[in-house]
Design a protein around this nucleic acid. Sequence first.
DNA 1: TTACCGTGTGACCATCTAGTCACATGATAC
DNA 2: GTATCATGTGACTAGATGGTCACACGGTAA
Lengths: 208, 208
Amino acid sequence: MPKKTFFNINEEKRKMIEEKAINEFAVYSYENSSINRIVENCKISKGSFYQYFENKEDLFRYIISLSVEKKMKYVNATLISEIDNGFIKIIKEIFKSGLKFAYENEKLASIGVLLMKNNNSEIYHKIIGQNKNMAIDFYKKLIEIEIEKGEIKPDINVEFVSYLINSMIINLSEYFFEINKNNEKKYSEEMLFLVDDLMDMLINGIGL
Amino acid sequence: MPKKTFFNINEEKRKMIEEKAINEFAVYSYENSSINRIVENCKISKGSFYQYFENKEDLFRYIISLSVEKKMKYVNATLISEIDNGFIKIIKEIFKSGLKFAYENEKLASIGVLLMKNNNSEIYHKIIGQNKNMAIDFYKKLIEIEIEKGEIKPDINVEFVSYLINSMIINLSEYFFEINKNNEKKYSEEMLFLVDDLMDMLINGIGL
DNA sequence: TTACCGTGTGACCATCTAGTCACATGATAC
DNA sequence: GTATCATGTGACTAGATGGTCACACGGTAA
């Protein structure tokens, strides 16, 4: 957590520091980011920075916490409204809210993707640590319920399918950025079709 | 390419340098690897290193070329023998030969995965560059043939499915390492089942 | 005026990096 | 013996990094 001095400075400056830090991590990832560059962009001194934050990790954790907080607002709203509508609907909505978050918070989403992909790094272990299987376990439970309801084949490899869904969610945002890199962004249409395609594929396969 | 001096030194020393470099890149990835550490582990001087290689990138490219060469031996054998057996068989065998390569060349596979995942980095663009869509285009063609043959739904998003298959292949090796990290390795059985599961899922979906 | 205190500063430190270069060694050729 | 040449060396450079610290500034309280 940042030191209390960080929360004492005026909001404009605070937001500016947050923004510059988000920019830095989104472009360079944690390992290759530079405090020197951040303070330079912020036009504050090195000494000031270390009066706001314990160290580089402290800043990164703070930015991640901002990101998680924001993303939760998207996902929680979905979960609450869809919790009784079964696996397909829930997963679909998680995918969609994930994409919506990525679309509306490109930089934060990029930081998240970089962190999740770099899952051998020290910072990944420090931040994600024991929670790394939380999402996967959640999908596992959903799938098991669906198997009991007779909606999903009972002989699938639940562990593996959960893992796959998890990496699909990470990949989906990336793919979306990829196809939209040079085009103008057509969030609402393209994106939702993509999720529908993906879910249809997951449930029914691509074979005839 | 390494300088000719590298190929003049005796094979034992050359293999040792290759091995230590592979180790370094597999553990630290390109960006975080250190020439200092490599020469220290090799017990050769910095000067010698720069008489063998132009620079760090030269060494990395060389190691990647070794890896590609080796992997091609696995995949090519598959492609030649399965080319007439249709999409499912080919993809299945590509998955399997990819896993076999990863199992038998853990370090090289790890270097490849790290490079492919870090697809924003300068080194990725330098090395993969314009070829980054080669694999995806290959899958696209396979799928289009299969659609014409009436084996795959004609209304799927071919571009997206190809992208997905590509990232599945990258993720599959990773998942395999993951589940085998603490267990003893049961390559032949578990691995092949995993591929069969995955392909069955891709073709038929998980829904009942 | 003096004392205190939160905030701001940038030179500085230790430590790392990739890459260089003047020199040493040792083998072969004449 | 001497000249040539490939190979080997490690101190050194220039530039980065994260983090520290003695000090400066400005406002408030006694």
